[in-house]
């Protein structure tokens, strides 16, 4: 199993240079059956990352550019009256895919945002009393420009909770950047890349991830973290039980990527900033959230 995941990561690494950590996090998120939010400035390779992942995993890929005039129907699909059959016919929207890249999700109106987020939660679309199941696996990668840009609708915290992880890509290091500049950019190579696994393998990977052993000692540690986040005066609100579950599942996936059959605290520490960062709302405006998360990690004994 380690071979498979290593291969996936290696392949993705060829396209997205110098971003192994982010690739692993994204993969872990997907293996834990969670949705991913990438937050960064434009041009950092968000779309490429999403596309690459889909390609490597052999998944169908759809991209929707969110704008302020995008309606829920544009994403979900619409029922149209068919004169020939005298019936309403459902035209599935782009959401009917394996990997949906919701680009710049914060540009869409809250209405459209919430429509998408409901689909993310339920993995099905309900229109006019009919329910349409989405293909499995279903994985949303949303990108978002950092807020405080005029004309955007930042996702409210209740919606943010639906994303298992939030990652940032940041600027590449000099070596990777040079390599990038020497090539024509990753997008060209995307077409060449072949799938490393098929659907079935992916699903078995997901199942295997859920079976990674979590000991009582580790649960103690996890609960320590949850407890602290709720007690600490640094945060406006502590981590929800859903966040706790997400932490566990992500740590399991991370342990699997490391080729271990059990979770250790280091796994939790590795994924915590990504899983908890967007759920914890810091109290003060003076220090950044990541500092508080570092503090949280320091305060809880292993």
């Amino acid at each position: 199993m380690k071979n498979i995941t290593d291969e996936i990561i290696a392949k993705a690494n060829e396209i997205i240079l110098g971003k192994e950590l982010q690739i692993k996090l994204a993969l872990a998120c997907l293996l834990a059956k969670g949705h991913l939010l990438i937050e960064d400035l434009p041009g950092m390779g968000k779309t490429t990352l999403a596309h690459t992942l889909a390609q490597v995993l052999g998944l169908q890929f759809q991209r929707v550019q969110f704008t302020s005039d995008l309606l829920p129907a544009d994403v979900l699909g619409v029922s149209v009256y068919d004169r020939n059959t005298a019936n309403f016919k459902f035209h599935p929207g782009p959401v009917f895919t394996n990997v949906l890249l919701a680009d710049e999700i914060n540009r869409a109106t809250p209405k459209t945002q919430s429509a998408l987020l409901e689909v993310m939660e339920e993995a099905q679309v309900t229109i006019d009393a009919s329910t349409y199941a989405l293909p499995q696996p279903f994985f949303v990668i949303a990108t978002q420009n950092p807020s405080s840009q005029i004309g955007t609708f930042a996702l409210p915290e209740s919606q943010l909770d639906r994303f298992l992880m939030r990652i940032t890509l940041n600027y590449p290091d000099t070596a990777s950047e040079r390599k990038l500049l020497q090539s024509n950019g990753g997008r060209d190579q995307l077409k060449k890349i072949s799938a490393a696994i098929d659907h079935k393998q992916l699903q078995s990977l997901q199942t295997a991830s859920q079976e990674i052993y979590v000991s009582d000692s580790l649960l103690d540690y996890l609960q320590g973290i949850l407890q602290y986040s709720r007690q600490s005066s640094h945060f406006n609100a502590g981590l929800s039980p859903r966040a706790g579950l997400g932490l566990k599942q992500s740590a399991q996936a991370w342990a699997m990527l490391a080729g271990r059959d059990h979770v250790i605290p280091e796994d939790v520490q590795a994924i915590l900033p990504s899983v908890a960062g967007h759920r914890l709302v810091s109290n003060s405006t003076f220090s950044s959230n990541s500092e508080h998360i570092a503090q949280l990690l320091k305060a809880v004994a292993v």
Binding site: R230, Q231, S232, S233, F235, N236, N283
Partner: peptide, 10 residues
């Protein structure tokens, strides 16, 4: 003695 007190956020 030796009680540990943590303040929850108010």
């Amino acid at each position: 003695a030796y009680l540990k007190i943590t303040f929850r956020r108010a």
